[in-house]
């Protein structure tokens, strides 16, 4: 019986090349020997269907459906896989971040409503410089906050922040209307 994994026509590196264009290190996933060590040690695999070996197989076969898989959002980015991998330079956490980025770009990633937990953190970061309200050492000066905002220009964190402001303004408007009534 023909082993699917060894059949030449199963391989299609076009998708991988696209990922490599963005993150050169992704080239190293071609070294994967499918030993499964990463899965055995992976916390996400213990609580979800997240399976690094399957994800790599999909990429090496040019199967972009991986971008729609909700499993890629389960990765803990704990770097355990990187530590136990017998091959040098296979950087799974960076690959997952790259896949998530592509997933976001194609509109498959989390929507604003899925990111509500990050709204408050984003707001704090762009207004006081930490992820928490009333930080231990007080807020950064306005000048320093301006620097952070400039660095984050066009980043998703800014859109999350703007969406939260719009949402707040809308709630305020509704509240005012109710009070008037």
């Amino acid at each position: 019986m023909e082993d699917k994994a060894e059949s030449d026509e199963e391989w299609n590196y076009q998708f991988l090349e696209e990922l490599v264009e963005d993150v050169e290190e992704n080239q190293n996933i071609r070294q994967c020997i499918e030993c499964g060590k990463c899965i055995g040690e992976c916390p996400a695999s213990k609580i979800s269907d997240f399976n690094i070996r399957k994800i790599i197989q999909k990429i090496l076969r040019g199967d972009k459906s991986v971008l729609k898989d909700s499993d890629i959002w389960y990765c803990f980015l704990c770097e355990r896989c990187k530590r136990v991998c017998p091959k040098k330079g296979v950087n799974i956490p960076l690959l997952i971040l790259n896949l998530r980025n592509e997933s976001f770009k194609k509109g498959y990633g989390p929507q604003y409503n899925d990111l509500t937990k990050y709204v408050e953190m984003a707001e704090n970061f762009l207004t006081n410089g930490t992820v928490l309200e009333d930080p231990l050492d007080g807020s950064l000066s306005k000048e320093r906050i301006d620097e952070l905002n400039e660095i984050c220009n066009f980043a998703r964190i800014k859109y999350v922040f703007k969406a939260s402001e719009a949402s707040k303004a809308y709630k305020k408007k509704i509240h005012k209307k109710r009070v008037k009534k």
Binding site: L97, G109, M121, V131, D137, A155
Partner: peptide, 30 residues
């Protein structure tokens, strides 16, 4: 001492793809 101009490391946002590698590196380098 404590550096008053230091911000959060921004790892939380990088790990959720809310900032790019270059933006993360810029926050870190700052």
């Amino acid at each position: 001492t404590i550096c008053q101009n230091q911000s959060c490391c921004s790892g939380t946002f990088f790990q959720r793809n809310l900032i790019t590698r270059a933006q993360f590196a810029a926050i870190n380098e700052r």
